[in-house]
Structures are given as structure tokens and as C-alpha cells.
Measured scan of single mutants.
Amino acid sequence: MFYPNSPQTSPQLTQIPYGQQYAMMQRQIQQPYHPFATTEPQARLYPYHYQGPIQQEQGGFITQQSTAASPQYVQMRVTPVDQSIMSGYPNQTANGSSSSSFNYNIHPQQQQQQQQQQQQLRHHAMPVGSVPLQDDRYRKQLIVNYLAPDVTSTDLHELFSRFGELDGARIIYDKQTNMSKGYGFVYFCHAEDAKEAVERMSGYEFHGKWLKVGYSTNPLNIVPSNSSPYVHAGSRGAAG
């Protein structure tokens, strides 16, 4: 039997160049792979992502010199942007860049009308829970959420009447099932009393439920100042 490094198959040491006398086997001759043993700084910083320098080929596509990437890492192929796409944008300079302001050559009167329309939209648009300043009635009506099913309009009136005089209180019921929808409205005579009720009743436990109280901004629920107070009856038909 002959071994790869046996004296019968191995040459004389004098015939082997210096430095390879003890590297006779194939696994010894093959050098191990060192990912950080390279002179390129990109490979030292990113050993798993770097795959060699990027070269520009004919046709405008950018390719990489090395083989496919590892399945664990996804390499994105980048193509140059066609400058003709950006030619339609206004205020574009000769080098292809555009300024931040756009001039669509709008007539001054049209621009003024658009600004007025935007101001009107901001004036009428009102986020949930906010209180408008032009109508004091919005500051007097509250919406009470997360009410228990057994709470009546009379219970709601008695709960909030300790903060001040009320114009009314009612629970909203479903017309088909005649069941409470879980929320109601309270109408105060003074805005200061309503503000105190919002601050003190939010998070209050009532009939096993934690109440959420806020201003009601729905104009359909506003009680006119010259109208008669609501009837605080315990029956659902009268309260709904």
C-alpha cells in the first residue's frame, strides 16, 4: 500500500523548493479562506456584503464582478436614472436638479381664491374633541361614552347635575331594538360647569363602566337656548 506522503511516492527534499517541504498533501497545500485577509477597505468593513468592485458596462447597466450573493443577503441591482424623465418638472436647472418651490404660472386672482378656499376649509374642519370658538353652545354640550346598558337618562342627569344647572341629558337608544347604544349627551347651562365635568368625570366608574367624557361637536345635538329642557323620564321611549 502506498500513501500520498510515503517515501516511495514523495520526491527528495532537495528537489522541493524551500517553504513547501512540509506541504505535501493536497489539504495542506490548499490555503484556508480568510474573509478579512484583503487589501480593499470595503471588504474589511463589510465582509458579507462586499463582492468586489463595481464596473460600468456598455448599455448603462451596473453589474458586479463577483458571483451571486448568499441567500441570506439580498443584493440590489441599481440602474442609472434617465434624465429625460425629470425634464417635465418646473424650475429645473441645466444640471438636472430642481428647486423646492414650484411655479405653475397661476393667475394671481386664482391663487388668492385657492388660498381663501383653504382658509375656509381649515375654519370649518374641526378635529374630534375640539371646541370651536365662534359658538358658545359647543362648550356646553358633552358626550358621555361607555355607558352601561342599564343607565337611563334620569341617572345621567343626576350624575352630572352636581356640577351645575343642566339644560338636559339623554341616552341614545336603538330604534329597532330599543336598547341603549352605550353613549349619551349632557347639556349644561354654563360653559364653566361643562369644563369642570369634563375634567372630573373622564375615567369615572359608573355602573361598572369607566366613562369617557368630552365635548360634543355635532351641531345636530345642540340644544337651542330658547327651547324647553328635555324630559328626564326613566322610560326608554321618552328618553330616546
Results as ranks from 00 to 15, higher is better:
residue 4 P to L: 03
residue 6 S to E: 07
residue 6 S to K: 15
residue 9 T to V: 11
residue 9 T to D: 04
residue 10 S to T: 10
residue 11 P to T: 09
residue 12 Q to C: 11
residue 14 T to L: 04
residue 15 Q to Y: 03
residue 21 Q to D: 08
residue 22 Y to S: 12
residue 23 A to I: 02
residue 25 M to W: 05
residue 32 P to D: 10
residue 34 H to Y: 04
residue 34 H to E: 15
residue 35 P to M: 03
residue 36 F to A: 14
residue 37 A to T: 12
residue 38 T to V: 13
residue 40 E to L: 12
residue 41 P to M: 04
residue 43 A to W: 02
residue 44 R to C: 03
residue 47 P to I: 01
residue 52 G to Q: 08
residue 52 G to E: 08
residue 55 Q to W: 02
residue 56 Q to N: 07
residue 57 E to N: 12
residue 59 G to C: 08
residue 61 F to T: 13
residue 61 F to N: 12
residue 65 Q to L: 03
residue 65 Q to Y: 05
residue 69 A to D: 12
residue 70 S to A: 10
residue 70 S to D: 05
residue 71 P to K: 14
residue 72 Q to M: 02
residue 73 Y to G: 13
residue 74 V to T: 15
residue 74 V to C: 07
residue 74 V to H: 14
residue 78 V to M: 14
residue 78 V to C: 14
residue 79 T to N: 12
residue 79 T to C: 06
residue 79 T to E: 06
residue 79 T to W: 03
residue 80 P to K: 12
residue 81 V to H: 10
residue 83 Q to N: 10
residue 84 S to Q: 06
residue 85 I to W: 14
residue 85 I to R: 15
residue 87 S to C: 12
residue 88 G to Y: 04
residue 95 N to H: 04
residue 98 S to T: 08
residue 99 S to M: 13
residue 100 S to W: 07
residue 103 N to F: 12
residue 104 Y to R: 12
residue 105 N to S: 06
residue 105 N to A: 05
residue 107 H to M: 14
residue 107 H to E: 07
residue 109 Q to R: 11
residue 111 Q to M: 07
residue 113 Q to E: 07
residue 115 Q to E: 09
residue 117 Q to I: 10
residue 119 Q to G: 11
residue 120 Q to I: 08
residue 121 L to C: 06
residue 122 R to Y: 07
residue 123 H to I: 07
residue 124 H to D: 04
residue 124 H to M: 06
residue 125 A to L: 11
residue 127 P to V: 06
residue 130 S to A: 05
residue 131 V to Q: 10
residue 131 V to R: 12
residue 131 V to F: 09
residue 132 P to G: 06
residue 135 D to E: 03
residue 136 D to G: 04
residue 137 R to H: 04
residue 138 Y to E: 02
residue 140 K to I: 01
residue 142 L to Y: 00
residue 143 I to Y: 00
residue 144 V to S: 00
residue 144 V to D: 00
residue 150 D to V: 15
residue 150 D to I: 15
residue 150 D to N: 13
residue 150 D to R: 15
residue 152 T to H: 15
residue 153 S to F: 15
residue 154 T to E: 15
residue 155 D to W: 02
residue 155 D to G: 11
residue 156 L to M: 14
residue 158 E to C: 15
residue 158 E to L: 13
residue 159 L to P: 02
residue 160 F to W: 00
residue 164 G to Q: 00
residue 168 G to V: 07
residue 171 I to R: 00
residue 173 Y to V: 05
residue 175 K to M: 06
residue 177 T to K: 03
residue 177 T to R: 04
residue 179 M to I: 11
residue 181 K to V: 02
residue 183 Y to N: 00
residue 183 Y to I: 00
residue 183 Y to D: 00
residue 187 Y to P: 00
residue 190 H to L: 04
residue 190 H to T: 13
residue 191 A to T: 13
residue 193 D to A: 07
residue 196 E to W: 15
residue 197 A to I: 00
residue 198 V to R: 11
residue 198 V to T: 06
residue 198 V to I: 10
residue 198 V to H: 07
residue 198 V to L: 08
residue 199 E to F: 15
residue 199 E to R: 15
residue 202 S to C: 15
residue 205 E to Q: 07
residue 205 E to T: 14
residue 207 H to P: 00
residue 208 G to L: 02
residue 208 G to S: 08
residue 209 K to T: 02
residue 210 W to H: 03
residue 211 L to E: 00
residue 211 L to Q: 00
residue 213 V to A: 09
residue 213 V to M: 02
residue 216 S to D: 00
residue 217 T to L: 03
residue 219 P to F: 00
residue 220 L to C: 06
residue 221 N to A: 07
residue 222 I to M: 03
residue 223 V to T: 05
residue 223 V to Q: 06
residue 224 P to G: 04
residue 225 S to H: 11
residue 225 S to N: 08
residue 228 S to Y: 13
residue 230 Y to R: 04
residue 233 A to K: 08
residue 234 G to I: 12
residue 235 S to N: 11
residue 235 S to Q: 08
residue 236 R to W: 03
residue 240 G to C: 13
